[in-house]
Design a protein around this nucleic acid. Structure first.
Length: 788
DNA sequence: TTATGGCGATTTTTT
DNA sequence: ATCGCCATAA
């Protein structure tokens, strides 16, 4: 038995635990040891949030609640105590002794950690496995969406879905909505599908059903229309055995509320729940988490109110703001020490964010030292801006830096083009994350649609997508009729087309429909049979549909590329098939929830380009932030709305805090965007950075006499040669000569009347009603017009 | 039923 | 600048 008293052992145990987590700072360690009850960790950017999460889970699994506990294991021997003392001196400690120190350590499979991105979940998982070995595998570390999908797959039948329901993405949603609006005779002009969908999405985020939505709409005409669309949309999804992203969360909550037994099962299953990026949760996610945690209340949420940037998509910052209110007695721990950036970068970030009123308040500091000044460069235009940035990169790489040290983070994907062109030209290896993703490419979506239909023949939207792709003479009309018949007869679409000849309305297309149906049935049988692998099925689909030939015929230019993509999907399938228990429906789910950022591999030595949103959670030694102009960042839609400006400012904060060593902010005097040139003022966020932190430069000096070309003394010259950038002609074009109302004479079109004259770039676009050939649009400079 | 061309509208951000 | 829609023609 023990020769030392209990208090001594407790003290020793604490020392052991502290030693075990000694790589963390005091605040971080506090969070690690606060295992019981609700805990809010306000983790500033770069404050080691993931480290805390990983270590906290490790603590829960190794020691349980031992740190604050009075419990002492009676089996602890003197020899064990000696081992502990040696551990503190720096020797190893065996797991069996650790276990004797523990008080209610939790099995790994009873711990749940929820993140937003697959990448964050994967990283968490990797680090947990790294720290805990095999045991780490059993922790539920996944995204909201995949956790919910997993829960729903088990019990979706209770909600009227099959276990292999399809997950609809944005494109599928759009197609459904278009069909809905058409059915309801609502013009897309008055109700753009996008807008309706986003309204519905917002409704689902806040757990408002069509019924609730309708009652809230009251007498508002527009809202009533949306309510009808919402109802019809939801019905279509249900008929198709499909859920959209929002449904995954909302239906899980619905399931929990409707089936207390299921809720209780999960409440009992999870001892500890952790939620990352809590500031980005929406109401449905909030509800999901709260239901799960309601019984044990061992809920730890980690987040940073200053980094809440997804309000537009339903995230409510209130979730994090009200946590202490929702969970009385919650511990709050602030992590303000930053391990990522220089003090200058943090000062800039702190200064910018301090202009926001809605925040918990927190100020980052670092031991990393001041670092370099923040550079702000005002370029002439967007091409010049990209050129200056490439030059800095090339200089840096010449001086020993890696391409992968650099990241360009912009406000919107459209900005990537300049950089892509410029980097390609300058031979800078780069990757663009986001934009058109692999799984959004047409050919990939086609193939996935085939697989989806095989997996779930009730999927109307994807059925419609492939039924005439490649072309097999089945136009909208026959397909519509077949669907109508299915509805009237009460059979499935597949059943109807399998005996299409029985329906006179289908006579013309009957044979084709039947052939198609038989082909799909064959695929379905292949999928159900154990004799074929998924990839064999996939190859069969490609062969049977002559899809490669179709690609060749459809667009010979891109056929090569697209064929490669189709093959790439095949290797993805094969890779997935290596997993145990791989199923088609599992594969489809995985890719449905996959995004581009998940694919970002920090290993490759290339410059990375992505939106600021995608960059959240990432860090880079050198960061470029182009387009800091009013109207770009902050964006146009947002300038006049103070609440949205705060969100943009948080975005700016996220952007700045991605940088470890150097930060280059820039803007352009004039910028070609969305097809026309704009001259924007510098972003207000630049003015919010203290002047003493800034080093301002500009491409063009001001005191150049009017009418004289600026002196291209440096690098500009060679670049502007190769028609990437054409200097404006110094002699003004005679474009202004023509105005609306003038009668003009054209060499071939004859006489006409100018209807409109729109100045564009260096020219004027004229719309002219000619007497003989009708109305044409012509550029004044090229039209060779004479005035009458 | 499919192919084409012109026209207009449309631009955050993403699981 | 690009995309998607629509009307028109084959």
């Amino acid at each position: 038995m023990q020769s030392i008293d209990k208090n001594e052992i407790k003290k020793l145990r604490r020392l052991v635990m502290e030693k075990d987590f000694s790589r963390m700072n005091d605040m971080q360690r506090q969070a690690v040891f606060a295992t019981e009850g609700p805990l809010l960790v306000l983790a500033g950017a770069g404050s080691g949030k993931t480290t805390v999460l990983v270590n906290r889970i490790a603590n829960i699994i190794r020691y349980g609640r031992a740190y604050d506990s009075d419990f002492i294991n009676a089996n602890l021997t003197d020899a064990d105590i000696e081992d502990c003392k040696r551990f503190i001196e720096g020797e190893e400690l065996s797991d069996s002794v650790r276990f004797l120190l523990a008080d209610y350590p939790s099995p790994a499979w009873k711990v749940m950690a929820i993140t937003f991105t697959n990448k964050a979940a994967g990283e968490l998982k990797d680090r947990l496995i790294n720290m805990l070995g095999e045991e780490g595998e059993q922790i539920w570390a996944s995204t909201f969406h995949s956790s919910c999908a997993r829960i729903l797959r088990r019990d979706a039948e209770r909600l009227g879905y099959t276990p292999h329901f399809t997950i609809y993405d944005a494109d599928d949603q759009r197609r459904v909505m278009k069909a809905v609006l058409r059915d309801l005779d609502i013009s897309e002009k008055t109700m753009p599908p996008r807008a309706v969908l986003s309204e519905i999405s917002r409704a689902k985020d806040s757990l408002r059903t069509p019924d609730i939505y309708e009652s809230e709409a009251a007498e508002d005409f527009r809202l009533k229309m949306i309510a009808r669309a919402y109802r019809a949309y939801q019905r279509k999804l249900e008929e198709s055995d499909a859920m959209d992203f929002d449904d995954l969360i909302a239906n899980t909550v619905k399931l929990f509320k409707a089936c207390p037994d299921i809720l209780e099962y999960y409440q009992d299953r999870f001892n500890y729940i952790m939620v990352d990026e809590y500031q980005d949760t929406n109401h449905a996610q909030y509800e999901f988490v709260n239901l799960l945690a309601a019984k044990k209340k061992n809920l730890c949420v980690v987040g940073d109110d200053d980094q809440s940037i997804y309000k537009f998509r339903g995230a409510t910052i209130e979730n994090i703001m009200n946590f202490e209110h929702d969970y009385p007695g919650a511990q709050v721990i602030r992590l303000e020490q930053n391990y990522r950036s220089t003090q200058n970068i943090l000062d800039a970030a702190n200064a910018v964010i301090s202009n926001n009123t809605e925040r918990k308040g927190k100020s980052l500091w670092t031991g990393n030292g001041e670092g370099k000044m923040i550079s702000y460069h005002l370029a002439e235009n967007e091409v010049d801006e990209a050129d200056k940035i490439s030059r800095i990169i090339l200089d840096g790489v010449g001086g020993g830096a890696k391409f992968s040290d650099y990241a360009v983070l912009y406000r919107m994907n459209a900005q990537s083009q300049n950089f892509e062109r410029m980097f390609a030209k300058q031979g800078i290896p780069h990757r663009i994350i986001g934009g058109t993703r692999f799984y959004e490419r047409q050919e990939i979506r086609d193939m996935i649609a085939y697989l989806s239909v095989v997996n779930n023949p009730a999927d109307e939207i994807r059925m419609r997508r492939i039924i005439n792709r490649p072309k097999r003479g089945l136009g909208d009309k026959s397909v519509d009729t077949a669907f109508q018949i299915a509805e009237q007869v009460g059979e499935t679409f597949m059943e109807v087309i399998s005996h299409a000849e029985d329906f006179p309305a289908l006579s013309r297309a009957a044979a084709k429909l039947k052939a198609f149906g038989e082909m799909i049935s064959r695929f379905i049988r292949m999928n159900e049979s154990d004799d074929f692998t998924m990839n064999e099925l996939y190859q069969e689909i490609i062969d049977e549909t002559d899809y490669i030939e179709f690609l060749q015929a459809d667009d010979p230019e891109r056929a090569q590329d697209r064929t490669e993509n189709v093959e790439e999907l095949s290797s993805n399938i094969q890779r997935y098939e290596e997993n145990e228990g791989a199923t088609l429906s599992g594969f489809l789910e995985e890719i449905a929830l996959f995004t581009d950022i998940d694919n970002y591999d920090e290993g490759a030595d290339t410059v990375v380009l992505m939106t600021v949103h995608s960059a959240k959670g990432l860090e880079f030694p050198v960061v470029f932030l182009p387009g800091w102009e009013e109207g770009v960042f902050p964006g146009t839609a947002v300038i006049y709305n103070p609440a949205e400006v705060e969100e943009e400012r948080r975005l700016a904060y996220v952007a700045i805090t991605r940088a470890m060593k150097e930060l280059f902010v820039s803007g352009a005097e004039s910028r070609m965007i969305f097809g026309s040139t704009a001259r924007n003022r510098a972003s207000r966020f630049i003015d919010e950075i203290p002047e003493e932190l800034l080093e301002r430069t500009r491409s063009r000096e001001y005191n150049i006499r009017k009418g004289v070309m600026p002196d291209f003394s440096s690098s500009e010259h060679e670049n502007y040669q190769n028609n990437i950038y054409k200097p404006k002609p110094s002699v003004p074009a005679p474009a202004g000569t023509f105005k609306a109302g003038d009668t003009v004479e054209h060499k071939t079109f004859g006489t006409g009347l100018i209807l409109t004259a729109a100045p564009m770039a260096n020219d004027t676009l004229l719309e002219i009603a000619f007497d003989k050939v009708g109305t044409k649009k012509l550029f004044a400079n090229f039209a060779r017009l004479t005035k009458n």
